[in-house]
Structure formats: structure tokens, C-alpha cells
Design a protein around this nucleic acid. Structure first.
Length: 399
DNA sequence: ATTCCACAGGAAGCGACGGCCC
DNA sequence: GGGCCGTCGCTTCCTGTGGAAT
């Protein structure tokens, strides 16, 4: 008992270089969003009519991950809530992430629950939920619905239809829709009608460049770490890395946080070397995550390749720069025997080739076609990451 | 030049599954 | 709730390709 308490106390009282770790978390929404002033005003303009009980415009927001789409919209919603208090406007809003609520029913359920928080909607049809929501809006409320990752909704056409139809059927009150997505091609798949209602206005968020990322990181670092515990060099390096990776601020923050953790365990300020190590660590986290979500047979194929790459074989060749490569035929044999020992039915060779293509697309392996010097027309496979790490990740998944 | 090898990847088809329609 | 249709994941079959062996 005593020991346990002491460990807790020790952990708590241990000196740390962090001032407030939350500021560095990807979920944190800062009050100030640098380089997004234009976007903020545009979003505000679209929904401003709501404050004078008029119908707001629907809006579609597009941009790659980590460019501040969600942060901007959440920020605007907060401002909207503040302002409505002041003007006593009858305005409501809800933010939903469609990865969690990915059907028409689930979205409508959240809307109904928002409309009548004390009621239970267990076992009710989506029509009923919809009616309940309309009843609420019909009292003269202007309601803003934000659907983040809107491309994840399975029956989006039906959902947008319901929500826009609400406007036609109501004498008082309006519904405004804001859709957020990181894939622009997805809207081409939409029914033309939902496309035209949803995309009344569009905003495209551009990726951040290295200087902008640097400024963002600096601002966060100033609040996340204790004074003087982050070097400018570290910040510049982290932003440079992230700028290469499609200007993703979330990635930049992840790097900084990881570098912070590494430095913290040594009680040293965050310097460039920690950022470098953080990049490797973050990269590894991402790869492990990727392997964890791989379909069963793809992970077995990967494991088989790692196995062969590790222990080598008679067919194994070396490229000019001395790296190990495998023949696809032999990799298939390895996969087959692995399946046998794990008592799993192996897929056909044809499908195996398809798996190879997918693994290559995910960057877990690289392949090249055999040139002169090798009999036949085959692919040479090379693992993109150290075999031990790949094997460990697969084993963890399989256990 | 011809045949053989060791595959790549397209085409067709098959069974299971999910959604939709009456 | 049963019939139908589209799609997914997969197998089987097949033609193509590029270099090696003869």
C-alpha cells in the first residue's frame, strides 16, 4: 500500500517539461486558428442568416486531413452559440461525426435526442424520429447540422433529402447543413439532387505550408510546454517534415507531442534530435496501426514475406545495392505452408497476386518486375520495413 | 528459331450476403 | 417474408510476356 502511494506521488511530483499536454492533443481546439481567418469568415457568412431567423445556406467543406476543417467549423459553432445568447435568437446546432453515426437512422436519432433530450426514442422508426425533430424546428428554430466525414454515411442521398425537405414543409424554422469531407471525388457519386442542395456553396481548405505549420506549432508549444523547453530548430524541423506529408497540422502536432514525450523522459528540452526520433516512432506507430487493420490473409502474406526475408532462402537474390528480394512464387509457397501450419485455408495464387498489389499500394512492400538475369517473368518482392517489427505487429494482431 | 519457364493479370463464373420491393 | 438484384470475395481458366534453355 505504502509503495503504491509513493509511486503515484512520485509520478505526480516528477518534474516535467510539459505545461499543459492537452494543448498538444489532436482533439484540442484553440481559440485562435492561424491562417484560417478567411475560411472562418466565409463559414460565418453562410450561417449568419440563422441569427435573424432566416434560412442559412448549405455548405460543403473539402480539404485534406489536418488542415483545420473541423477546428474551423467547431470554432464557428461556438461563436454562434455565444452570439445567439446575446441576441436571444432561436438557433440550435449540432456537430456529428459520421464515422460514428453513419446511417440516416443514427443521424436522425441524434437530432431527435437533441430536440427532446428527456425523451426516449428506443425502438422508434426513423420516420418518427424525423417527425419529432421537425416538431422542434417547426416552433421557429433555425438549426445547423454539421456532418463531419460525411462521405462515411451509407445512405447519404436519403439523409440529405430528408433534411432539405424539412425546409419545404415548415412554415417557421429552417435547417442548414454543413458537410465536411476529405475526399472530393465522393461528391461525384452523389445523386444530382443531393449534390446540388449540399453543395450550394463550397470551401476548399488548402494545406498549410512549412512556415504556417511552424507558426501554428510555435503557438501551441508556447502553451503546451514550460518556457524555454522547446527549441526553434525542433519546431522548424517538425513543420518541415509535416509540410512534406501534405501539410498536415495534425501530423505536425503528433510529431511535436512525441518528441516532447521523448525529451520529457530525459528531462531535457525538445531539440531537433528528438523530433527526428519522434518521426521514426510515429512512422512505426502508423505502420503498426496499418498492419492491425489488415484483412486476415493479407497479414498472413505479409508475415510469410517477413519470415522469408528474415531467414533467407535458396531462391533469395540480392539486388545491386545488396538488398534481399524474394520471388513471388516462393513467397506464395511460404504463404501456403504458413496457412497449413496455422490450419487456415490458403487463397489461390491468383488472389495472392492481388494481395501483393494491395500490400504494395499501402507501402508495406515494394515490388519490381524481374529483368535480365532471371528466368521467366516474375515479381521481386522486398519488405519495406524491418522483418522483426512486421512480424511482431502481425503476431500481436493474431494472438 | 523454337520451346520452356514462371509468372502477370484479364474474363467468367460462383456462392454468400445485404438491401429493396412488393 | 420471399423473390430478386447487385456486389463482394474468391476460384478457375486463360492468354500474354520476357527472358532462358535447347
Amino acid at each position: 500500500m505504502w509503495q503504491l502511494e509513493n509511486i503515484f506521488e512520485k509520478e505526480i511530483s516528477r518534474p516535467t517539461i510539459f505545461e499543459d499536454r492537452n494543448v498538444l492533443s489532436p482533439h484540442y481546439i484553440p481559440d485562435h486558428l492561424p491562417y484560417r481567418e478567411k475560411e472562418i469568415t466565409r463559414v460565418m457568412k453562410q450561417i449568419a442568416p440563422a441569427l435573424s431567423q432566416k434560412r442559412p445556406n448549405n455548405l460543403f467543406i473539402y480539404g485534406k486531413t489536418g488542415v483545420g476543417k473541423t477546428a474551423v467549423v467547431k470554432h464557428v459553432l461556438e461563436k454562434l452559440e455565444e452570439t445567439k445568447e446575446k441576441y436571444q435568437a432561436s438557433v440550435g446546432s449540432i456537430y456529428l461525426n459520421c464515422r460514428v453515426h453513419n446511417t440516416r437512422y443514427q443521424v436522425l436519432l441524434k437530432l431527435a435526442q437533441h430536440a427532446a433530450p428527456e425523451e426516449s426514442f428506443l425502438g422508434l422508426s426513423s420516420t418518427h424520429l424525423y417527425e419529432r425533430f421537425l416538431e422542434y424546428v417547426g416552433k421557429g428554430v433555425v438549426f445547423i447540422v454539421v456532418l463531419d466525414e460525411i462521405d462515411k454515411v451509407k445512405d447519404l442521398d436519403e439523409l440529405t433529402y430528408s433534411l432539405t425537405r424539412a425546409n419545404d414543409g415548415l412554415a417557421k424554422g429552417h435547417v442548414g447543413l454543413i458537410g465536411i469531407s476529405n475526399s472530393i471525388n465522393f461528391k461525384e457519386k452523389l445523386d444530382p439532387r443531393s449534390k446540388s442542395t449540399l453543395c450550394q456553396d463550397e470551401i476548399v481548405f488548402a494545406p498549410y505550408n512549412a512556415d504556417q505549420l511552424s507558426a501554428i506549432l510555435k503557438e501551441r508549444a508556447a502553451r503546451g510546454f514550460k518556457k524555454g523547453y522547446v527549441t526553434d530548430g525542433a519546431i522548424h524541423l517538425a513543420s518541415a517534415y509535416a509540410a512534406q506529408e501534405s501539410g498536415d497540422a495534425r501530423y505536425a502536432l503528433r510529431l511535436l507531442l512525441k518528441a516532447g514525450e521523448l525529451a520529457d523522459s530525459k528531462g531535457k528540452p525538445v531539440a531537433e534530435e528528438y523530433v527526428k526520433r519522434a518521426r521514426a516512432a510515429v512512422e512505426e506507430d502508423i505502420v503498426i496501426e496499418l498492419i492491425n487493420t489488415l484483412p486476415e490473409h493479407q497479414s498472413i502474406v505479409l508475415y510469410a514475406i517477413a519470415n522469408l526475408a528474415e531467414k533467407g532462402s535458396k531462391y533469395q537474390r540480392l539486388t545491386e545495392n545488396g538488398e534481399h528480394v524474394l520471388f513471388s512464387g516462393e513467397a506464395y509457397e511460404g504463404y501456403e505452408s504458413l496457412c497449413r501450419s496455422w490450419r487456415i485455408n490458403a487463397r489461390s495464387a491468383r488472389w495472392f497476386r492481388e494481395y501483393l498489389n494491395e500490400l504494395e499500394m499501402m507501402g508495406l512492400i515494394t515490388t519490381m518486375i524481374s529483368g535480365p538475369g532471371i528466368r521467366g517473368n516474375t515479381r521481386l518482392i522486398r519488405l519495406a520495413f524491418p522483418p522483426e517489427k512486421v512480424k511482431a505487429a502481425v503476431e500481436k494482431r493474431f494472438a
